[in-house]
Design a protein around this nucleic acid. Sequence first.
DNA 1: GCTCTATTACTCTAGCCAGAGTACTTGAAC
DNA 2: GTTCAAGTACTCTGGCTAGAGTAATAGAGC
Lengths: 220, 220
Amino acid sequence: MKRPANALPLAVLTLLFEKPMHPYEMSTTLRQRNKEESIRLNYGSLYAVVESLRKKGLIVVGETTREGNRPERTVYELTDEGATAMHEWLSEMLRDPSPQFTDFEAALSLMGAIPPEEALELLRLRLKALRLSSSQYEGVLASIPEDFPAFFLIEGEYASALRQAEIAFVDKLVTDLEHDRLGGMQVWRRIHELREAGHAGEEATAKLHEEFGGLLHWDI
Amino acid sequence: MKRPANALPLAVLTLLFEKPMHPYEMSTTLRQRNKEESIRLNYGSLYAVVESLRKKGLIVVGETTREGNRPERTVYELTDEGATAMHEWLSEMLRDPSPQFTDFEAALSLMGAIPPEEALELLRLRLKALRLSSSQYEGVLASIPEDFPAFFLIEGEYASALRQAEIAFVDKLVTDLEHDRLGGMQVWRRIHELREAGHAGEEATAKLHEEFGGLLHWDI
DNA sequence: GCTCTATTACTCTAGCCAGAGTACTTGAAC
DNA sequence: GTTCAAGTACTCTGGCTAGAGTAATAGAGC
């Protein structure tokens, strides 16, 4: 079975593992349990996902009811295959780390396309935003009763741990940039100087090789 | 302008910022620079993305050439609007932290659907895999010459920092589970015991409320 | 000189997913 | 007693994306 990037189908399976539900109830339940913060949820996807699970035989239509003149509600139930698939899929996601392609990692890898001074300023702003959201999270945590079971906060704690690591990383990067301490910064800066002066493309590349010589012959 | 989740269009813009290219050259360049590790790349997406950038006027067709009987190569160039868009978009991605919906965060938030003992074992395996990939990364790092510019390794360093944080988090979680130290574990375990005994759905929920009383009335 | 694999350069298709749109109901406020 | 926001329950559209498929050439090895 192919695992989609989005965990929404898995979330649907786990909800139906609890009890039969209609899609709208799934969405309100997920929302009420704050799953929206860890799982991308919207109606369009939800109904499509439910239909595709049904086609695969992982869920079946139970009953359809109607209250007053409102749209009909279609209640779905988990099949045995669905329960198995849910178990396998969730196990895999817990067990196997998979490459994640985050925005910031991509941005870092393309950072060379803007001049170092600008990048530095943007990273300072990022740091500020990260620290703010971190302290907001701490605030929310502080407002939760002491005896609230940690189990229900686990995904938030994980996100928070990653955020702390990102803060430490960006903080160090900012400091390194401020002190011109990052290896390769001269090339990076020179590229943008040349471009400012009207040199671009192959021509600029040639000039860089001339100026920096062997240093440009890495390519791991 | 709407930012797609995938950074591929941005990568295309930054490549054309360097010099005009045809799509196939973009893909080989990205691959050669190890950008595949931070940016999801495949042909289907690449050609679609290039076409959509063209439609938006961010890039234009330069020349088309043909060598022998091979398929024609269409070379694209960045427009001024494209350069502006690239700059804005990359700035945004560096500046604004955005929610990331990782697999593992989703898996943690749905972990309740499998029994605690199983989850513990899966997390142990995850930890092992994480440690392995961490030491592999260290190995690769060690094989790189000392004077290799850190700037070109920055996204790998970021990924590595996050991985270290995940290792620390999972390690602690495993220990907590081993010592029955995580708040809410009794409810979690009991849910699966009841299910084993044939109680599910509303019935099980009622029983849980009976047994655990007030403890189940959180919902932040 | 013939086969086999790798490389070059795309094209096609089906499914996924986000966001906006629809249409009805309930309850609160003035 | 009527308006207006919020809630209920979906449907539609169109863009995005992954993976497989195609079709030619170049070079390595026997």
